[in-house]
Design a protein around this nucleic acid. Structure first.
Lengths: 250, 250
DNA sequence: TTAATAGTGTCTTTCAGACAATATTAT
DNA sequence: ATAATATTGTCTGAAAGACACTATTAA
C-alpha cells in the first residue's frame, strides 16, 4: 500500500427527490461562488473533519454529512418535522480527477426520498435553493448531470424492490396516491386495478388504517381506504416496471 | 456550502472474490506496517493525486485506483491475462471518522469477480497476499469485516439480477459449472434440472458454443454441452434466491 | 454392471397483465 | 343523471418449483 495520503477533497452531494403535480422534482441550489458561479448544482459540500490540539480526529460520518447538507439547504432541522421522515441512502461515489476544477474531489452521492417539503427559505443560506422538475434539471455544475441521471435510474429500480415509495407520502395514504408515486417516478401510468391488488398482496407493504378519505375524488368516485407503510423492508414478490425486456440486451 | 476542504484521506478497498473447491474465497493481505501491523485487511490503498508545477491536477479515477490496487496485490498487470476478465464494480463508501486511527479516511469499496486467479506472487509487494475462504475472513483490520459482509450481500444479490456469475468461469463453461458458482455464492445447492432450464430460458444469459466437454463427470455421467457468456446485461426474468420470504420483514 | 450426472417431460401453484363488472361519490 | 373513481371478479399466459424419467459416461 502507498502509505502517503495525498490531500483530496471529500464532498457529499444529495439528490433529493419529491413529488409535485404528479411529476418528480429534484432539489437544486444556485452556486454563490466559483467554480460554476451562478450555475445550478446539487446541494452538497465538504465532509467536515478536524483535529484537536491532541491530534484526535473530530469528524462526521458520510450519512451525517448528507443529512446536514440537506437540512442546511431546506432550512429544516435534522430529525425535526418533515425532515425526520426523509429517507437518505448512499448510492455511488464519483472521483474523476478533473470533475472539480479546483482540486481532486471525491463526491459521495446520496438519494433522498422526501414527502412534499416546503420550498427552501430564501435567506437561509448564501445560495438560493429550489425544487425543479427532473426533466428541467439539465446543464448542472460539475458532473452533476451524470449524478442525477444515475440517481434517477437508481430510484426507479429501488421502487421495484423496496416499499420506499411510501416515503414520498404522508403517514396515511390511499392506494391511488401510492400509484401516483410509481407513475411519477417511472414516467408511465399503471393499470389501477392490477396495481391495487398487487400492493395489497405483498406482505408488509402497506397496512390498513381502517379509515377512509373524507371525500371522494375531485371529479367523483367513492371514498378510498387509507393505509400506512407496513413493516416490510423488501417487496416480495417485487413490483417490476412493465416492458423492461428491451432494456436487457447490450 | 463550506468551501474549505479539510484534508481527508481517500482510499479504495477491493473485495475480490473467486471460487475454489466449490466455495467462495476472498483476497486478503497482511499489513506490513501500522496501523494493524501484521493483521489481515482488504487490498487497497490511497487514491493517487498530485499537482504539477502549474497547479494542474494529475490524479486517477476511482475505478483506475481499484484496478491498480488489485493488480499490485495479485502481481498481474491490468488489462493483461486473467485480470482482463475480472469484473470490477463500485458498491459502497465508508467514512466513519474513527475507522482509521491515523486520520479521517473515506474508503470507496469495490467488488471484484475473478476467475480462479493464480496465488499472488510472494515477493510482489511489501505485504503478503492470499486467498482465504470467506467463512475464515474474520477479525480484519479497520472496518473491513463490515465491508466484507456488505460485499457478500451485494454479490449474492447481483447474481440474482445480472449474468455476472459467468465472470467467475473461463470463457467456456457448462451449466453445471455455472450452477456451482451460484451454489458457492448463495451457500446452498440448487435443483439441477430447474436451474438448467431456467438458465437456457433467460435471453442472452448464455449462448451455446456447439462443443461438449472432453470427458464426462469425474464419477460418471454424459459429457456436458459448453456455453459462453451471452450479451445480456440483466437477467430477465431474474434468477431469485429460493426461500427469501423470511428475509423480507423487519 | 453400477452409480453418477446431463438434460427433458410434466404437473401444480403463483404471479403478471388484460379487461369486465360493480359500487360509490362529486358535480 | 352522468362521469369519474375505488374495488372486486375472471381469465390467460408466463414463470417457479417439485419431481419423474431417459440417456450417457466413468469406474
Amino acid at each position: 500500500m502507498n502509505d502517503v495520503a495525498p490531500a483530496l477533497g471529500v464532498t457529499v452531494d444529495v439528490v433529493a427527490f419529491t413529488i409535485r403535480d404528479r411529476t418528480l422534482w429534484v432539489l437544486l441550489v444556485e452556486r454563490a461562488g466559483p467554480p460554476f458561479e451562478g450555475g445550478r448544482a446539487l446541494p452538497g459540500g465538504f465532509v467536515r473533519s478536524r483535529r484537536d490540539h491532541r491530534g484526535r480526529v473530530h469528524g462526521e460520518d458520510l450519512d451525517e454529512a448528507a443529512l446536514r447538507e440537506l437540512a442546511e439547504e431546506t432550512g429544516l432541522r435534522p430529525g425535526e418535522g418533515a425532515l425526520a421522515r426523509v429517507h437518505l441512502e448512499q448510492f455511488a461515489s464519483y472521483g474523476a480527477p478533473a470533475r472539480d476544477p479546483r482540486m481532486h474531489v471525491v463526491s459521495v452521492a446520496y438519494l433522498a426520498f422526501a414527502p412534499d417539503l416546503p420550498d427552501p427559505r430564501p435567506g437561509g443560506d448564501a445560495r438560493t435553493a429550489g425544487w425543479v422538475p427532473v426533466a428541467a434539471a439539465l446543464d448542472l455544475a460539475f458532473d452533476h448531470d451524470m449524478i442525477v441521471t444515475d440517481a434517477l435510474e437508481r430510484i426507479r429500480s429501488t421502487l421495484e424492490y423496496t416499499p420506499l415509495a411510501t416515503a414520498f407520502l404522508g403517514r396515511e395514504f390511499t392506494i391511488a396516491e401510492l400509484r401516483a408515486v410509481y407513475a411519477a417516478v417511472w414516467g408511465e401510468e399503471l393499470p389501477a386495478a392490477d396495481f391495487h391488488r398487487k400492493v395489497l398482496s405483498v406482505p408488509g407493504f402497506v397496512e390498513s388504517s381502517g379509515a377512509v378519505t373524507a371525500r371522494g375524488g375531485a371529479r367523483g368516485g367513492p371514498r378510498a381506504r387509507l393505509y400506512r407503510a407496513g413493516d416490510a423492508r423488501l417487496l416480495h414478490p417485487a413490483l417490476l416496471r412493465p416492458g423492461r425486456e428491451n432494456a436487457v440486451r447490450l
